[in-house]
């Protein structure tokens, strides 16, 4: 993990008032929200509104993040990329002492992605991923790559639930080297690509986040490479249905978030048609386009059935194993009684 450095050196107490050296705004610290490699984030109050205030002894990283947020602010449309930037300033703890850089941003309230899914159920997962991919598309169009994309950096606000990215510390201009990353979500770590900032880098991370949602404790690299991750996907039914899209993202075959989004959506839309318990109403009303589509769908249905069969088979073996274990236990029991 990246975040193993300096635990909060300032340790500001609630009630501390921070006054900016340049703009003179006052912020009252409410509590600490979190800390990472690049500083500490506090919840603070400014004129009765809640804001998030990030502070670091490394002025460089603060400045660099501010640059990213400023450029996000120029992007047209609903502001969902990062938190919106409110103020940038320095603070002197002691008169004449060194100044600490900080910036103030919108406070995005809500649980992180994995806690949200844990609480509200996994059916939300795909909705949030589709939202994330739309956001990434806008981010990429504007020449950036998020970089350190991971569940801890994704907050679900609402209602209605909406995914938001926080912590732009890893956000890198396209074509440069990724500034900051976390191993599990980094394609370089898995031996599946470079650390150059390009859209496919984020899409790899996004796929790993989907996998992470089925494996809350993540997993360790053993052999690495696509084979290990594909195996992990196949062991979880909620991932298996997205296998094609996930593997494509992991191998860097998507150059746009939009393409991945469309593929994931198709899986979701196809589902009712594939369900054998429902009469195939949609294909009835279908045009020629639909009938053309039928062929691969039939193919898929077949694979589904074989999958079921396999499941049935494994059900029988399970039954035999349990029966045998019980039998052995009973034999031991009677044997003991006889002695």
């Amino acid at each position: 993990m990246m975040n193993h450095t300096l635990k909060n050196q300032y340790n500001l107490r609630p009630g501390t008032i921070i006054t900016g050296k340049w703009h003179g705004n006052n912020y009252t610290i409410v509590k600490e929200l979190g800390y990472g490699a690049n500083g500490v984030v506090y919840l603070a109050k400014h004129k009765n509104t809640q804001v998030a205030l990030k502070m670091s002894d490394n002025g460089m990283s603060i400045t660099s993040e501010v640059n990213v947020l400023k450029s996000f602010a120029k992007v047209q449309g609903p502001q969902t990329l990062g938190p919106s930037l409110l103020d940038v300033d320095d603070w002197r703890i002691l008169q004449g002492g060194p100044a600490i850089s900080f910036y103030v941003m919108e406070y995005i309230q809500g649980p992180d992605l994995l806690s949200f899914l844990h609480k509200k159920g996994k059916s939300w997962a795909i909705v949030l991923f589709l939202q994330l991919l739309s956001d990434l598309e806008v981010l990429h169009e504007n020449g950036w790559v998020f970089g350190d994309l991971k569940p801890e950096n994704l907050i679900v606000t609402g209602p209605p639930p909406r995914i938001r990215c926080i912590d732009v510390g890893g956000t890198t201009m396209q074509g440069r080297a990724i500034k900051e990353f976390t191993e599990f979500y980094d394609r370089g770590y898995w031996g599946l690509g470079s650390r150059k900032a390009e859209p496919s880098y984020d899409l790899f991370s996004a796929a790993m986040i989907m996998i992470n949602s089925a494996y809350p404790n993540r997993f360790k690299k053993t052999t690495g490479g696509i084979s290990q991750i594909r195996e992990a996907i196949r062991q979880k039914p909620e991932l298996l249905k997205f296998e094609k899209a996930l593997v494509k993202a992991l191998q860097g075959h998507y150059s746009h978030a939009k393409q991945m989004r469309v593929d994931l959506l198709n899986v979701m839309v196809d589902k009712p048609i594939l369900d054998p318990s429902l009469p195939p109403k949609r294909t009835d009303s279908g045009t020629t386009v639909n009938s053309q589509k039928k062929v691969p769908q039939a193919g898929r249905q077949m694979t589904r059935q074989t999958y079921r069969k396999k499941k049935k088979k494994s059900g029988w073996t399970e039954f035999f194993i349990i029966a045998m274990v019980l039998g052995i236990l009973y034999a031991l029991y009677t044997f003991n009684k006889l002695l």
Binding site: W22, M60, T63, S64, V66, N67, P98
Partner: peptide
């Protein structure tokens, strides 16, 4: 030094550093 610049200017210098 860089710390003595106002935040806006510092951002521009930072781009050079990056």
């Amino acid at each position: 030094s860089m710390e003595d610049l106002p935040p806006d200017k510092r951002g521009e210098v930072m781009e050079v550093v990056d």
